[in-house]
């Protein structure tokens, strides 16, 4: 079972990053829940979602202690850093977050998502860069399977598929 919290500013693709993980899980035959924070959120406000991936049917979709935290901005890192399970993983968007994680009992991966997304051709793909880093770090699903999921998710917008696959691969290799 993997419990993942993804948090950042509204507009950073936080909720859709969670959905990419959820779609990949479903296509892999896993059970999954995706639960967003909801409310009067807007671009620039804060947003987060909780994703639970499991071989068994998911009971609680509420995550008290995540295995993985993906922090896209500083307030999100501050809010959830102490909740991550010992031995867990924190992925930090180091384009925006300049601080280092002080905890020594977790694995930390710093990824310069905004700059790397430029290499894919569009800063909108920063969340997909992070998706690549997440899949590499956790090994949750094979690279090829996630690429297949990206193709399925964007089936109605085939033009954006190559850019997103490129962003994913950049994140995966970073």
């Amino acid at each position: 079972m993997q419990n993942i919290i993804i948090a950042g500013f509204g507009g950073q693709g936080v909720l859709s990053l969670g959905q990419f993980i959820a779609y990949s899980a479903m296509y892999e035959g896993k059970n999954v829940t995706w639960l967003p924070s909801y409310g009067p959120e807007m671009r620039g406000g804060t947003a987060n979602c909780s994703v639970v991936v499991s071989d068994e049917p998911v009971a609680s979709p509420i995550i008290a202690f995540p295995d993985t935290l993906i922090a896209m901005n500083k307030p999100s890192l501050d809010k959830f850093v102490d909740k991550v399970k010992p031995g867990g993983l924190i992925i930090v968007n180091s384009s925006i977050i300049k601080d280092k994680v002080k905890r020594t009992d977790v694995k930390v991966c710093y990824i310069n998502a905004n700059e790397l997304s430029l290499q894919a051709g569009n800063t909108k793909t920063a969340n997909i860069v992070v998706l690549g880093a997440f899949m590499k770090q956790t090994g949750l699903f094979a690279k090829e399977d996630v690429i297949k999921s990206i193709e399925k998710i964007f089936a109605k917008k085939p033009k954006v598929i190559p850019m997103n696959i490129k962003a994913f691969e950049i994140g995966y290799e970073a």
Binding site: Q19, A22, M26, N31, V32, T33, W34, L35, P36, Y38, V58, P61
Partner: peptide, 10 residues
Amino acid sequence: DGMIGQIMEA
């Protein structure tokens, strides 16, 4: 409740 309305599942 709001949770079952907003959650995504397969």
